[in-house]
């Protein structure tokens, strides 16, 4: 018998605090598996700012830094400039990256900083209890948009990959999802590619991963996956928005 699925070495034994069915856990595992594959070449430092994944330093069996809200790309810049041969990644949520930390992510991308961003987009603020996020869909109900997101009042959802793809700095930009086994495998490939881009010192890489928040969406874990597929995919199309070779594939 051959073990084909087990806990990756780059994760500790600590059980995740995430809610049942929250896909953060899947994404943690994918990142850890990819770091495992880097082997000796992959001494890694992870940076987790404020958000549901603020406790990521408990889970990744790596040197870890907990950072302030939105600032992980600046912290990662400081780490990578001091340790250019070390694999560095940030793990950020959508409120963190696309609201309070928008300046830091854009400028890290513009500078082409050679680290990898794992950007988890679940269209809501999870940790603080389900408030409207910059990625919340029009009409989506949250605790601070109880009647649904009114774009006149709260603006429109931000498309991070599309935004960054208008600029010259980034080397790799990809949006994936984890709502089905096939999509999880694709997400894993995108994460692999992003870390490979970094290992080859090709520059800034970001993988946006559409993720669920069953608790704050008010849906069970399965219905959450369906909602992600039905509601989020049309607004956040999957695909590669930038590759080092230039062979973008907007329809993965």
């Amino acid at each position: 018998m051959k073990v084909i699925a087990k806990r990756p070495e780059s994760l500790t034994q600590q059980a995740f605090h995430y809610c049942p069915g929250c896909t953060h856990g899947i994404i943690h595992r994918l990142v850890a598996e990819v770091i495992d594959e880097l082997g000796e070449g992959g001494p890694a430092v992870g940076i987790a700012p404020v958000g549901c994944s603020v406790l990521a330093y408990e889970y990744f069996n790596l040197d870890m830094i907990q950072a302030s809200h939105g600032r992980a790309p600046a912290v990662a810049t400081g780490v990578k400039r001091a340790l250019p041969d070390c694999i560095v990644f940030t793990y950020q949520g959508d409120g963190d990256l696309a609201a309070i930390g928008l300046s830091e992510i854009v400028h890290a991308a513009l500078r082409g900083e050679n680290f990898t961003v794992i950007f988890v987009n679940n269209a809501i603020y999870g940790m603080t209890g389900g408030q409207i996020a910059p990625t919340t869909l029009p009409g989506q109900k949250t605790t601070t948009s109880p009647l649904g997101r009114d774009t006149v009042l709260s603006g429109n959802p931000i498309k991070v990959c599309e935004l960054l793809a208008t600029q010259e700095g980034p080397a790799y930009l990809s949006r994936v999802s984890v709502h089905s086994p096939a999509q999880v495998r694709r997400a894993r490939k995108a994460i692999q590619k992003a870390f490979e881009v970094q290992r080859k010192k090709q520059g800034f890489s970001l993988v946006e991963i559409l993720s669920t928040c069953p608790t704050n969406w008010g849906l069970d874990p399965l219905k959450s996956l369906e909602w992600l597929e039905k509601e989020m995919l049309p607004r956040y199309p999957l695909g590669e928005f930038r590759t080092p070779g230039g062979e973008e594939n907007g329809s993965l």
Binding site: I65, A67, R71, A74, G78, R81, A82, S103
Partner: peptide
């Protein structure tokens, strides 16, 4: 030259961590 003082101090945080 960072994008803001906030970014600068967080770059400091990152480098100091190393």
């Amino acid at each position: 030259q960072s994008e803001s003082e906030i970014a600068a101090i967080n770059m400091v945080y990152g480098t100091s961590s190393t």
